[in-house]
Design a protein around this nucleic acid. Sequence first.
DNA 1: CAAATAGTGTCTTTCAGACAATATTGT
DNA 2: ACAATATTGTCTGAAAGACACTATTTG
Lengths: 226, 226
Amino acid sequence: MAHPFPPVYVTVDVVVLTIRDDELHVLLVRRGSQPWLGCLALPGGFLRQTEDLPDGVRRELREETGLSLEPAHLEQLGTFGAPDRDPRARTVSVAYLAVLPGLGEPVAGTDAAEARWFPVAEILATDLPFDHHLILTTGLERARSKLEYTTLATAFVGPTFTIGELRQVYEIIWGRPLDPGNFHRKVLGSHHFVHRTDAARTGGRGRPAALFRPGRTGLLNPPILR
Amino acid sequence: MAHPFPPVYVTVDVVVLTIRDDELHVLLVRRGSQPWLGCLALPGGFLRQTEDLPDGVRRELREETGLSLEPAHLEQLGTFGAPDRDPRARTVSVAYLAVLPGLGEPVAGTDAAEARWFPVAEILATDLPFDHHLILTTGLERARSKLEYTTLATAFVGPTFTIGELRQVYEIIWGRPLDPGNFHRKVLGSHHFVHRTDAARTGGRGRPAALFRPGRTGLLNPPILR
DNA sequence: CAAATAGTGTCTTTCAGACAATATTGT
DNA sequence: ACAATATTGTCTGAAAGACACTATTTG
């Protein structure tokens, strides 16, 4: 097929979120090439000819961050294509949002490029290359909004979790405290949001909390309103 | 900049919705080239090197449908990039949703390519080229969902409208009747959804209805729940 | 026992939905 | 007057938020 106009290049970028030390963090890599050499940026790169968009995201994540974990959640955020977004060439970037459970260890311990978790609040106060600041805020708003009507929160915690841990996810991402009693009742009242296990989490300061697994639903009914 | 891999081409496609004869319609064009020559498809085409994504959508709409009206609403739906979506070459398509007020006359009266409005229900029962069926259903679901928490409905009607006309938009897109009394109260109770004018629409069968203009809001508060 | 967290109960307010009642036009 | 649509009022049930209360652990 003859292409009638100069090509537009396609890249993928990804906002990877997790919760560490009771704070929302985002995964950034240090750029190894111009422009913005040495600056922190979202992981991402050129889409290859034969790969699907989510596969491209997973490959870039692996290559740039050494991240071995499959993200618990991966969804498309939108496509950013302002003509001047990249000074080198005309590109459009298909941006994704990924969510991982909060794990203690740093991400790129091997010989992968430098990749680290940064507190979101800190990054929002700095500059980011290209339109990555806009992509990041889009991802944050998406996460905030999806907590309301989907089970996204379970992607931030481990395979089993307490209602209190789930509440912390909401509190950290929404940035305000929630009533523990009301939250408990709402989560258990949302059909198939969580499924109770026989185990309990002991060792905390107060009464042991029952452990739950994610339920069968993706959509919350009724929703957990902000 | 040297590009390390074979290029991926970028196209834009658009789902244009309107309401005609109390039915939801979508704008389709008849393809003038292979593949799918002569078949009905969503308007769209290659993005040019220097234009922004929404500008590309507007240009394709103008070129392929002769549509002179600026859509009352234009938003990005998402990007569709399955490796086999286009048999000619690897493309990713950035899809948009546009909404126009329902006007009586057909769209491409000039010498533009054949472009016509089709009832959505009829099109959903047929095949469409590429992944246009998926793009269409994505657009429909977006429209249904955005009626709840945004003022999207006002994009389907003229600059002034009655509450009854607005209710018809909801009824047609949601596919079920709504209680006129409750709807009236909810719309007027949603802060700045609509703004009353002094005029009234007479000539109908019953009591004349007050005319309204769109309010200042984009987001409904409280929402009009489905 | 005190402190801390988990989980339940209760009350009030708000709001959606069903439906009745009133208002104002065309035929 | 009657049919049709607009607009307002009333009632009921569901759900959210505030907050008190009980349960069970650690220190």
